[in-house]
Design a protein around this nucleic acid. Structure first.
Lengths: 156, 156
DNA sequence: ATTAAATCCGAGTATTTTAATAGGAATTAA
DNA sequence: TTAATTCCTATTAAAATACTCGGATTTAAT
C-alpha cells in the first residue's frame, strides 16, 4: 500500500515546476538538481505527466516545461494518477471497468471494502489542488527564511 | 498503491473463518480449499494474523483456528495492517514514528498530502468491522441461494 | 550555418519485493 | 500409536521497481 518513487518524485517535480515558473519554461535539469532526483529518471516521470496533459514540453534550447493548466485546475489526484495509474487498492472489476467481469461478483463481500478504500483515497487527493500546495510552499518558505535552500536528498 | 495478495487473501481467510466457525476450530486446509489459496502460503498469512492477536491457533489433530476476539471488535483495518504493515503511502517520519526524522521536514509540503491520504485510508478501514462483513456475507448467501458454492478462483 | 541546450524516445539492467514452494519439527485428539 | 494439524524456517521463480544509457530531434542564440 505504498506509492512508488514515481508518485513521490513526480509530485515534487510538478510542485517545483509550479513554484519556480516565471516567464520562462523550467528545464528538467533545474528541477532534477533542486529536488535531488536523477534527470534521466525524471524524464520518464515527466513523460507521463505530459501524456496526461498536466505539463507541456517546450523543445529546443531555452526550452523546458510549463504547466498545461493553471494550478487551481490541477488536483493532486490528477498528478498521482498520471504517475501511478488508477489509485485503486486491488484489481477488481467493480472498481475498474477495464477488468474482465469478476466471476465471484455475486458472492464477493470484500468488494465493499475495496470500494470504500478507493473512494476515500481518491476523494482525499482530488480535494487538494496544486495551487494549495504552491500556497503552502510559499508560506513555509517565508517562515523558514528564503536563504535556507533544499540541499539534502529527500525521499518522500 | 495496491494491496498485495497478503492483504487480499488474508482478509478473505479471516472472513471465511468468521463465517464458518461453529463449535469447533476451522482448519487451514478447509479455508485454503474454499478460498482457492495454497495452504502453504495461507500458513504464512495466518501467522501474521496470529502474531497480531486476531486469530488463535489450536494445535494437534482436530485443531485449527478461531477468532481471538468477537468479530465486532475486529476492524478490517486491524486485519489489513496485520497483513500489510502500516497502511501509509510513503515512508515519512511525519507519519511513522519509527522513521528517522526527516531532514526536510521544515520545508516539506507533500507531507500534508501523505497525511491526508493516510488518514482517509485508515478511517475507511477502521470503520468497517469484521462483523459487518459477516452480516453482509450472510445476506448475500441468502439471496444467491445456499447451494451456489464458491468454486472459482478469486483474485480480489 | 553552426552550436549548444534542451526535449524526446526506447532499450537495457541491477535490485528489491512478491508470491509462492518445500521440508520438517512439535503438538494433540482419537 | 497414528494421523491430523499447527508451527517454523529456508529457498526460489517471477515480477516490479528504480534506475542508467545512448542517441535522435528540435530550436534559440551566435
Amino acid at each position: 500500500m505504498k506509492l512508488t518513487t514515481r508518485g513521490r518524485y513526480g509530485l515534487r517535480a510538478v510542485l517545483d515546476l509550479a513554484v519556480n515558473t516565471g516567464n520562462e519554461a523550467v528545464s528538467l535539469s533545474e528541477i532534477a538538481e533542486r529536488q535531488g532526483i536523477s534527470m534521466n529518471y525524471l524524464e520518464q516521470l515527466i513523460a507521463k505527466l505530459k501524456k496526461s496533459g498536466i505539463v507541456q514540453g517546450i523543445r529546443g534550447a531555452q526550452g523546458g516545461y510549463v504547466l498545461a493548466m493553471p494550478p487551481e485546475e490541477i488536483s493532486v489526484g490528477d498528478i498521482l494518477r498520471a504517475l501511478e495509474g488508477d489509485l485503486i487498492p486491488v484489481d477488481c472489476s467493480e472498481l475498474n471497468s477495464g477488468d474482465t467481469p469478476c466471476i465471484n461478483s455475486d458472492t464477493c463481500v470484500t468488494k465493499y471494502v475495496w470500494k470504500r478504500i478507493t473512494d476515500s483515497i481518491n476523494d482525499a487527493v482530488d480535494g487538494i489542488k496544486l495551487s494549495d500546495l504552491v500556497e503552502k510552499s510559499k508560506e513555509i518558505q517565508k517562515e523558514a527564511g528564503i536563504a535556507e535552500a533544499n540541499k539534502t536528498k529527500q525521499t518522500c
